[in-house]
Design a protein around this nucleic acid. Sequence first.
DNA 1: TATTGTTATACTCTATAACTATA
DNA 2: TATAGTTATAGAGTATAACAATA
Lengths: 153, 153
Amino acid sequence: MPAQTPIGLQLTRGAKEISAAFNDALAEAGGSLPVWVVLISLKTRRLGNQRELARAVGIRGATLTHHLNAMERDGLVTRRRAPDNRRIHLVELTEQGEALFHRLRAAAVAFDRRLRTGVSDEELATFASVLGRMHRNVSGVDRPAGPRPGGPE
Amino acid sequence: MPAQTPIGLQLTRGAKEISAAFNDALAEAGGSLPVWVVLISLKTRRLGNQRELARAVGIRGATLTHHLNAMERDGLVTRRRAPDNRRIHLVELTEQGEALFHRLRAAAVAFDRRLRTGVSDEELATFASVLGRMHRNVSGVDRPAGPRPGGPE
DNA sequence: TATTGTTATACTCTATAACTATA
DNA sequence: TATAGTTATAGAGTATAACAATA
């Protein structure tokens, strides 16, 4: 007899508000969720081109271009062509981009602390583990990537 | 020494994809996440007016109007003024709306089964409990409800 | 012809502000 | 004047399709 909790809906709705709160925390520090993910990817990984960056961020190439345009306009990144293969655009953080990265990291850490209040390390580990399994359970490669909610949206 | 898992980001990103998969499952059944939540609220609760409905769904009144316009156009609901207080619009499911509700419920149940694969009842209970606590931890009433990310926003 | 990225356009979900109708 | 809801407008995030540049 399986549990009857509608966990999909519960997760979707709960996470929507938690994500909104996370985004608010990042906005107060001058960023946003997609910008934060792009910055992390740029700092953390050695990425060859924008396609890899888009994949790491979990969005399409054209959508990444959209964000990079804004980030370049705001002086957070520079784009230049790679000398050896001029099709590739090298994306690099400016000093301002570095500074924003550190501010957003502090905001993210503070948000995490708030989020974890009253949650034991063991519970947190279980939570993360289950989340990961659920993610894999539904991350079929069969999804042809239509328009995404909002999102949600 | 607190755990160092960046759980906020992990949750936000994981849930984004899980929500997208959920929405896809609902879309295959002819619906969407917001439509599903509206239908559930209409079926489950006795709601006096659209404001209460909007609150139950977690969106603003104008946003609800937007969805109800589409749902009315699609023949899922009807709106008529309450005889005793003609300011209030009574929202009611049509037969088509009822039918869609049942199709979406089946899709949601199937999605949940898929989501829960390899997750014990005990783990699921912990997961739901932690999610609820996290939600409360960041659901400050101080958030003045600005524009929400897509997508979840 | 294949690869990398950009531009043009559009869609979904959400919101606020201004408005109409009713009380 | 207060309440219920709609209309008008906007904005963030995402996507596909068509295009340009490079190899």
